[in-house]
Amino acid sequence: MYVEIKDLCFGYTNAKERTVRDFNLEIEQGEIISILGESGSGKSTVLRLLCGLEIPEKGTIHIAGRTMTDERTFVAPEKRGIGIVFQDYALFPHMTVYENVKFGLKAWKRKDRSRRVQEVLELVNMGDFSKRYPHELSGGQQQRIALARSLAPAPELLLLDEPFSNLDADLQVKIRNELKAILKKTGTTCIFVTHDREDSRALADRMVTMRDGASYDWDSLCTTREEESQKPELVRLK
């Protein structure tokens, strides 16, 4: 398996109950997975655990054959080769679009960098905007730049945190379709979390539903839904 998450547990310091409880998931290379759940179900936390921005209490994460977290290992976020688009994009306000996209390319050869920036900007149809600052862009444009920025270093895994929540409805549908095309074109393995069933259906190859992580009800802990059958099916039984 390309991505393997086993028995992942995590609770925030101030919270009484764990946000993520025995979370299991396996993903194949090139798959687009959506994690569907209501707010507070712990879906964004799973992304943060994958990134290494939070440290799990228990469980293991393997990505592309590398162990990211287990009892002994903890790979720092910057060494995981994961790209993420945050819900509010987090474009650096003191850098232009060009500088933002180039930011993650320090491992690339100097002469390849600007070519790569231009390439991913073209990919998201923002080729003419490289000199602008983030605040000079609309919400949809910012979203594309954030996507371009995380795609630029060619990450092994791309994570999207509620990618459409800050866009209005028309734009949402348009960008959704474009995004699917871009991801398939680049062959990127992708996990995105959303609370919108429509988004999930339109974009994902496979859906995973997450409910109240503290629940002991095994059926709702972590299930996949095949799009056609709409029947709940257990991912893995212990």
């Binding site: 976020p77 910057e78 993420i84 474009l91």
Partner: peptide, 21 residues
């Protein structure tokens, strides 16, 4: 924390992030 996290996910370590962002 969001800019710092974004920077780290783009491959900069804490110290570089600190000076660049």
């Amino acid at each position: 924390n969001k800019y710092t996290e974004a920077s780290r996910m783009l491959g900069m370590n804490m110290t570089k992030t600190f000076f660049k962002v």
